[in-house]
């Protein structure tokens, strides 16, 4: 009875605070009145998974199984739904074993490539559907008649697009070259923003708080920056002008490391900010179960609510920061230094 009350309370709090859904603990543990482990619970919710875990009622887990796609030289391509595994904590199916949502081959010498459509991939696809349905629709309106005043969704997104163009791209990259980078900057901004917001929905996936996603985005900035780099950019790295010779030799490795630290910081910043936000909200809610009293609930709700609003702001802020810094790195790579040429 106590467990049931706990879960009903929990779920209602979650929906009120519109945070990521939380279902305390895993199904295996509830039965055996085990100690509540907030750390494990939080990790479970911010990690990727082969199933979409919606909520629990009592001992019932409400999940949507997702497709598992595995490839190995020995077994070839295998595609099946994740519910073929009796559970994702510790079980096996066919040639494969799953251990805490990680799939391996039974034979430990076989390396399995796991390219499953996980919870995060599904969430990314949802965000892509949103992106397409919004921006292709408003693009059609722009195409029909570019001269009419914006309306509806268009008038909501137009100032943002114009802001990215005028205050990020034009200002940082420069009037001459910004055009080429606009599609990337706009895509990256809206991709991150939409995924940040989707992550805040109850039962949402922590997409932009996943290091693989932020790594991919940072890699794009890295590739674009270095492919755009002009002679001056490379000269600045390998033979810094206006610096005494011995210093140039010291600066060289620093500059080379700098090429990589810039996108690395992008990757870590977005990942850490979003993950940290999720962890804090989840921690406030976990307080109820740590103290095993509902009297702490008002505190949890108050702080959770505050954090949720903060996260709504962080969602767009981090999208802006990522876009701005990407533009700055690109801007530095394509910048023309007329005045520097006199020194060397």
């Amino acid at each position: 009875m106590q467990t049931l009350t706990k879960y009903i309370l929990l779920i209602s709090f979650l929906f009120i605070t519109t945070t990521s859904i939380l279902s305390a603990g895993d199904n295996k543990k509830e039965n055996s009145e085990e100690e509540f482990d907030a750390g494990e619970l939080i990790m479970h919710h911010i990690s990727d998974s082969h199933e979409w875990h919606w909520f629990d009622i009592g001992d019932e887990r409400y999940i949507t199984p997702l497709p598992v796609i595995l490839y190995s030289k020995e077994y070839g391509l295998d595609i099946f739904l994740s519910n073929k595994f009796p559970n994702l904590v510790e079980s096996e199916y066919s040639h494969y074993v799953v251990h805490h949502d990680k799939i391996h081959a039974k034979d430990e010498t076989v390396h399995v490539w796991d390219i499953s459509i996980t919870k995060n991939v599904v969430s990314i696809l949802v965000s892509v559907i949103l992106l397409f349905s919004i921006f292709l629709t408003i693009a059609a309106r722009y195409r029909r008649n570019p001269l009419v005043a914006p309306k509806g969704l268009q008038s909501f997104f137009e100032p943002i697009i114009v802001f990215i163009r005028d205050d990020i791209a034009k200002k940082v990259i420069g009037e001459k070259k910004y055009r080429f980078y606009m599609p990337y900057l706009l895509t990256v901004f809206f991709f991150i923003w939409f995924n940040n917001l989707l992550g805040l929905l109850p039962a949402g996936a922590n997409v932009t708080g996943n290091i693989a996603v932020t790594m991919c985005l940072a890699l794009f900035t890295f590739i674009i920056t270095n492919l755009s780099g002009n002679a001056h950019y490379w000269k600045h790295i390998f033979w810094t002008p206006g610096v005494p010779l011995p210093l140039r030799i010291i600066i060289l490795p620093i500059e080379i490391v700098g090429i990589f630290t810039k996108p690395f910081s992008l990757m870590i910043r977005l990942f850490a900010n979003i993950t940290a936000g999720h962890i804090i909200i989840l921690s406030f809610i976990a307080l109820i179960f740590i103290f095993k009293t509902i009297f702490i609930a008002p505190v949890s709700i108050a702080f959770g609510l505050f954090m949720s609003f903060l996260e709504l702001f962080v969602a767009i802020l981090q999208a802006y920061v990522f876009t701005l810094l990407s533009a700055m790195y690109i801007g530095a790579a394509v910048e023309e230094h007329g005045h520097h040429d006199e020194h060397h």
């Binding site: 459509i117 996980t118 059609a140 722009y142 895509t187 991709f191 996943n210 693989a212 985005l217």
Partner: peptide, 28 residues
């Protein structure tokens, strides 16, 4: 970083970039 997610994210992001770039950002 998980390989599978990195793979899908790259594929999806490239496609999104191309499609939005061609059919949304360009006309906008």
């Amino acid at each position: 970083p998980g390989f599978g997610l990195l793979f899908w994210q790259t594929v999806i992001f490239v496609l999104v970039l191309i499609i939005l770039g061609r059919f949304a950002w360009k006309p906008i």
